[in-house]
Design a protein around this nucleic acid. Structure first.
Lengths: 114, 114
DNA sequence: TGTATATTCAACCGGCAGGTTGATTAACTT
DNA sequence: AAGTTAATCAACCTGCCGGTTGAATATACA
């Protein structure tokens, strides 16, 4: 029960600054200073936020000269989407009818892809 | 930027005990003692967890005699699913082709429903 | 070689999160 | 009226979180 990787992902996304950073990274990779620019906090604080996102697996950082380029890794988001799907029937009326059919169809399609 | 309701939902879900409580409530309503039984922590601690879930909108509590019945409200989960959909194209290869078509089809279907 | 730039490390601080125990409120039961 | 059960309130403790400032590290540039 301790140290479920999902814990870190949810915790990382609970901060609005970190979600804003992710939104920025969804449009392409960026350096720490570029990511820090829009925020009224210090670069060090943003660096800490990036460390949290990295620990959660949401970003990866690669060294490039004196810069550290950050890019988004969507894998944990996909995990979260799957977690949420456990509960989809609770709010989606069509989950047990049309949606189930379409979901199954999509899965079949994925199996046939390389 | 301050006090985005999504903050509280992500923060609430970051705790494994609270996620376990939600999983239990997905199978039906329950009282505080019933919810607390499986956990090695005090009833008061569970009561605090329920307060967090309630503040996030994930559960509602109604008084029934000396019991307080808790039931799950999936609305915030739906909000989260929509938030995640912003990023779906990043991990779902078929988002821009088949999935988009199916998604549009489902939306049309919803419009026609009462 | 020396300097400017990018980023992190380290130490510190206030506040909140999650847990405890003990007291209190509310309703049912006898 | 008294006792039992369900749940919360209150005070407290420990530790982590998000922020700060200042120093250190790494790379490019003149």
């Amino acid at each position: 029960m301790t140290a479920d990787p999902v814990d870190a992902v949810f915790a990382a996304l609970a901060d609005p600054t970190r979600r804003a950073i992710l939104a920025r990274l969804a449009t392409g990779a960026a350096t720490v200073n570029e990511l820090a620019a829009p925020f009224p906090i210090s670069v060090q604080a943003v660096s800490k936020h990036l460390a949290v996102l990295e620990r959660a697996g949401l970003i990866v950082r690669t060294r490039e000269a004196q810069w550290r380029r950050c890019r988004l890794d969507p894998a944990p988001l996909r995990t979260l989407a799957e977690w949420l799907d456990q509960y989809r029937r609770l709010w989606d009326d069509h989950y047990d009818t049309l949606d189930t059919y379409l979901r199954d169809l999509r899965e079949t399609h994925h199996e046939h892809a390389p």
